[in-house]
């Protein structure tokens, strides 16, 4: 079985700071990481590899520096890595991104048929959760999103059985390969690479594919191929009124003053709270 995992290198958004006055992003020195959600996808692929000796290829579309992220995947145990990189790919929205990734996956498939594609649930920078569905739609693969568990997978019968996080419950879906699985977070934990893995990652060649390697229509990639554009960036608006500072010499006095003031300002709150509590009591009594 051949499994492709799409990963993305993203800025560690926990470390991004916005200048309070100018609202500009201070990117300097912000480290990049593998999109945390993608690690769940990679680990799932590696577990399948451990069980079935599948081959795992990681792919990313990104700048040349994304090489680092791919190497980490190699250290964890991925067999091959492909960096899809070209100046014309930059500035892509999800439509253009999934176009390029789908083209790359087709190229990969032509070399060695792909049975399963994994993506993360979403990225922490784009946050869209659209690239996975986009890839599946373009390739005509089955789409299985928000997968929390792969119950069964059989390369010979081309069958896959998964649990999918749906609204209000878990769907158990039976589908066929080839499929795109977007992996839910918290489903597994990425392994700690061993030393031979680190050596392999440091030495192995990361393939680079540009526009010619994957044969794309230049009108559909990058900024040009992206229907959505960012029109404006702004910071959170401060509320017009500043918070009312509750006075009180002791915690008890402050608490009393707050409750009085709160219910004086919003009389309906007290009613609502009482009613709600009664309802809770009634329910409690029933059970």
């Amino acid at each position: 079985m051949h499994i492709a995992v799409c990963i993305k290198q993203v800025p560690d958004s926990a470390q991004i700071r916005v200048h309070p006055v100018t609202n500009t992003i201070m990117r300097q020195g912000v480290p990049t990481i593998i999109n945390p959600y993608d690690l769940f996808a990679l680990e799932e692929a590696l577990r399948i590899k451990d069980r079935t000796a599948a081959k795992v290829t990681v792919l990313t579309m990104g700048p040349p520096q994304a090489d680092d992220a791919l190497r980490k995947c190699l250290a964890f145990g991925a067999d091959e890595a492909v960096l899809i990189t070209d100046k014309v790919f930059s500035g892509a929205d999800t439509l253009a991104t999934s176009y390029v990734l789908a083209a790359a996956l087709k190229t990969l498939d032509a070399r060695e048929p792909v049975d399963l594609v994994f993506t993360g649930k979403q990225t922490i920078d784009g946050d869209t959760a659209q690239v996975g569905p986009g890839i599946a739609t373009r390739l005509g693969y089955q789409l299985l999103t928000y997968v929390s568990k792969i119950r069964e997978l059989d390369a010979d019968s081309r069958r896959i059985l998964v649990e999918r996080r749906a609204e209000g419950g878990v769907q158990v879906l039976e589908s066929a390969l080839p499929a795109v699985v977007t992996m839910l977070e918290g489903t597994n934990e990425i392994r700690f690479a061993d030393m031979p893995g680190m050596f392999r990652a440091a030495r192995q060649e990361v393939e680079r594919w540009n526009r010619d390697a994957i044969g794309v229509d230049l009108a559909k990639v990058g900024l040009k191929g992206s229907p959505t554009v960012v029109a404006q960036v702004f910071g959170p608006k401060p509320k017009a009124v500043k918070a009312f500072r509750v006075a009180g010499d002791t915690p008890a006095a402050m608490a009393e003053a707050f409750v009085d003031r709160l219910f004086a300002d919003y009389p309906h709150l007290e009613e609502a709270m009482l009613e709600h509590l009664e309802q809770v009591d009634r329910q409690g009594a029933k059970e």
Partner: peptide, 23 residues
């Protein structure tokens, strides 16, 4: 922007080749 809405929106937008703003 639920698991259902996002699952569907991604595929519909790609099929229609139109832009989609998420979340």
């Amino acid at each position: 922007a639920t698991t259902q809405g996002r699952d569907l929106a991604g595929s519909v937008a790609t099929t229609l080749l139109t832009g989609l703003t998420a979340d």
